[in-house]
Structure formats: C-alpha cells, structure tokens
Simulated assay, not measured.
Amino acid sequence: MVYFAAWKNHISVYPVPDGDEDFERGIAPYRAAKGTLKFLLGKPIPYELIERVATVLAERTRHRGGY
C-alpha cells in the first residue's frame, strides 16, 4: 500500500493521495513529484506525516476496494 525507496541523499515515499487543503499544505514541503514525497537525509523525518499518508491510503482502499 505504501512504498518507500532509499537513495543516497533522501528517502522517497509513494504513492501520495490527493487530500484536503490542510493535507496538501502539510505534504507540500516534501512533494517531489505528483505521487512522491522526498525526505532529505540529515533532516528529521516527519513520521506523523507518513502515518497520515498511510491512513488516507488505507481509508481509500477500504472504501473503494483499491487505490
């Protein structure tokens, strides 16, 4: 459901669902592409934000039977 990749200078998390204005504002500093969040190594990783992304994806999967 949630994928991640480790790179030399960052960690990526994807896919990123669309959300309300508050959600979009929260992920904006980390958005690297339409469906990817990029967290630079050496900076604190916002685990709460990743949890929020996973929660939104889980809710959508549960309601639609998929992404």
Rank of each mutant, 00 (worst) to 15 (best):
Val13Asn: 04
Pro44Phe: 08
Tyr47Ser: 09
Asn9Val: 01
Arg31Asn: 06
Pro46Met: 13
His10Pro: 01
Gly26Ser: 15
Phe23Lys: 04
Glu48Tyr: 06
Pro44Ile: 02
Ser12Gln: 10
Glu48Asn: 14
Gly42Lys: 09
Arg31Lys: 15
Pro44Tyr: 03
Arg31Phe: 08
Leu41Glu: 01
Glu48Trp: 13
Phe39Arg: 02
Glu21His: 09
Gly19Met: 05
Phe39Glu: 03
Pro29Thr: 09
Leu40Ser: 13
Glu21Asn: 11
Lys38Val: 11
Pro44Ala: 14
His10Val: 01
Pro29Gly: 06
Tyr14Met: 09
Phe23Asn: 06
Leu37Val: 10
Pro44Gly: 05
Ile50Asp: 11
Gly42Trp: 07
Gly26Ile: 00
Tyr3Gly: 00
Gly42Cys: 09
Asp18Lys: 11
Lys34Asp: 13
Phe23His: 07
Ala28Leu: 09
Leu49Ala: 12
His10Asp: 08
Leu37Lys: 09
Ala5Met: 07
Tyr14Asn: 02
Val13Arg: 07
Glu24Trp: 06
Ile11Thr: 14
Ala32Gly: 12
Asp22Cys: 00
Asp22Met: 05
Lys43Ser: 13
Glu24His: 05
Ser12Cys: 03
Glu51Asp: 15
Leu37Glu: 04
Asn9Met: 04
Lys34Met: 06
Glu24Arg: 04
Lys43Leu: 13
Ile11Phe: 08
Ser12Met: 08
Gly26Phe: 02
Trp7Asn: 08
Lys38Ala: 09
Ile27Lys: 10
Tyr14His: 14
Ala32Arg: 12
Arg25Ser: 13
Phe4Ser: 13
Asp18Ile: 00
Leu49Cys: 12
Trp7Ile: 00
Ala32Val: 00
Ala28Phe: 09
Gly26Leu: 15
Trp7Cys: 01
Ala33Cys: 00
Pro29Asn: 10
Leu49Ser: 12
Lys43Gln: 15
Ala33Trp: 03
Gly42Met: 08
Ala5Gln: 13
Val13Glu: 04
Asp20Lys: 06
Trp7Ala: 10
Val16Glu: 02
Arg25Ile: 08
Gly42His: 09
Phe39Gly: 05
Leu37Ser: 07
Ser12Val: 00
Leu41Ser: 04
Val13His: 07
Arg25Pro: 00
Lys34Thr: 12
His10Phe: 12
Val13Phe: 06
Phe23Gln: 03
Val13Ile: 15
Phe39Trp: 08
Glu48Ser: 15
Glu24Thr: 06
Ile27Asp: 04
Pro44Cys: 01
Tyr14Gln: 04
Ala33Pro: 00
Asp22Ala: 15
Ile27Met: 10
Arg31Tyr: 07
Phe4Trp: 14
Phe39Lys: 01
Pro29Val: 09
Ala5Thr: 02
Val16Thr: 01
Val13Lys: 01
Ile27Gln: 04
Pro46Arg: 12
Thr36Tyr: 13
His10Tyr: 12
Ala32Asn: 05
Ile50Phe: 10
Leu37Thr: 05
Pro29Asp: 06
Lys38Thr: 07
Ile27Cys: 09
Leu49Gly: 10
Val16Gln: 01
Lys38His: 11
Phe4Gly: 08
Asp22Phe: 02
Glu24Ser: 10
Asp22Asn: 11
Ala32Cys: 03
Ala6Tyr: 05
Tyr47Gln: 14
Ile11Pro: 00
Lys34Gln: 11
Leu37Trp: 07
Gly19Tyr: 06
Thr36Ser: 02
Pro29Gln: 07
Phe39Asp: 02
Ile45Asn: 01
Pro15Thr: 07
